[in-house]
Design a protein around this nucleic acid. Structure first.
Lengths: 153, 153, 153, 153
DNA sequence: TTTT
DNA sequence: TTTT
């Protein structure tokens, strides 16, 4: 149960190779920039228009970070689900600055590789269940329906 | 990492009290129906129109099932995130029938109670981490920014 | 403003070519089936498991229907945003039956073609603004920031 | 049809009353801050933890801006769907600064008021179809099923 | 800085 | 069967 929802879904291309860093306690963090865009025809002038938006994605999820590091490159096509988070930091002059990023934490967020060549990536679970194990009675194995009196609504 | 996305988000009201059942191996499953609607003005007649859609939600997630059982009632206002799944079953005459439902499995899906009176519900984690533990360096505790050379993109 | 949310996001592959039909008043409707899946490792047995879910997508949105008809085929990789809707119908024996589908109506829903070969599709706007025209002051043209006193929060 | 996805869903409370401004060409723009949060139990210490994230929402959509201005206040409970966008601006010292916001444009985005007292708000369509007119054959009026040969998949 |  |  949550008291709120904070969900970002982005599907687009990487503008550059991902960058890998470590937190002070040694955990892998992978960062990349992804572009989304929209195109439309101006209603008054009839002109074709286009905008690109750039987003920073930060992966703290161990399994997904390894996948991103190994398989994503400049130009990669990817779909990302994460949370919107804003960090505060100080620039050299000591002024407060803010960076708003799309964050993939452990057990939160997901990454879908869309380039055929990258889809050979192992399931993330190979990295230790970085994501999720469905917890439903196996529907294919079930000889009987889950409930005796089952009717559709 | 996933190879696909299957996500349903519904925000609406329960049409009736939730129903609780057990799977054959004893796990709690809670089911309810939720209504969503849309209203619009017909462009040609100018008339106000309205439709209601009814959805079946099935919660296999232990923690969320308990919350739903205890706090949700007919008329409850709720937001649900789950997966779209279709079950096949046989009716009395042996014919194949299908039921398509919004399913909340363990580690997948979420439930947000929107009625003030219900928001006293304990965090789901009280039921044994039915959901998620963020895995990010605690941002408030961090005296230094996560990375030395940090600048916003 | 809406009083509820009804949103489905699916990313997967088509199981067969789309089917085109017309409503009784002549409008194009395109239908296809799309598969999503999940893979996980069983916690107790360690076995690799996998499920596939099949979904029916129905496009009433004129522009998107034409794109789907022309560019999508069995095996196509696609991302779809629509609404969950259940239709009631009678089978030959007069019994009530239900079909639950992911519906893309005009001004609602979206379709993203993920196969490189299909991405040559014209912008949907070519079909008459089947989707959406951003309505924001053009950020690139703006010599001054949108607001005089702008500071980030 | 889109070539990318850029979608943010937030459900939370306003931290302060919305602010109304006008663009240089006179259009209403409403801005507010909304908080989302997550709570979890630290796996190692067993301690209860909590974080709050703050987000800036900017509404360029005329109808939704009017609704927000009139009905939302500090503490209002709201669900928002918009796009993630980053603006560049110059501070007093001429330095480049960035602000990342959740933007609701015309025909894009949605707003759901969750406080009972605010739900009296008129449908947004009262403001001129700021959102969406479903474009589906009216299912209730249909004496016959939409298609002659209809069977569920 | 991506992509079409 | 909900809600406004």
């Amino acid at each position: 149960m949550s008291r709120s929802i904070n969900r970002v879904t982005l599907l687009g291309h990487l503008g550059a190779d991902p960058e890998s860093r470590r937190t002070q306690d040694g955990r892998l963090v992978v960062t990349f920039r992804i572009a989304t865009g929209e195109a439309w025809r101006d209603k008054t002038t009839g002109e074709r228009k286009e905008t690109t938006d750039w987003h920073t994605v930060v992966i703290f999820n161990e399994g997904l970070a390894k996948v991103a590091e190994q398989y994503l490159r400049r130009g990669s096509h990817v779909c990302v689900e994460g949370q919107l988070k804003t960090r505060k930091w100080q620039d050299q002059s000591g002024q407060d600055r803010y960076a708003t990023e799309v964050v993939l934490q452990a057990f939160r967020g997901d990454l879908v590789l869309l380039d055929r060549s990258e889809r050979q990536a192992p399931d993330e679970t190979a990295y230790g269940a970085a994501r999720t194990r469905p917890d439903r009675p196996d529907p294919t194995a079930a000889a009987a329906p889950p409930f005796d009196d089952e009717v559709p609504f």
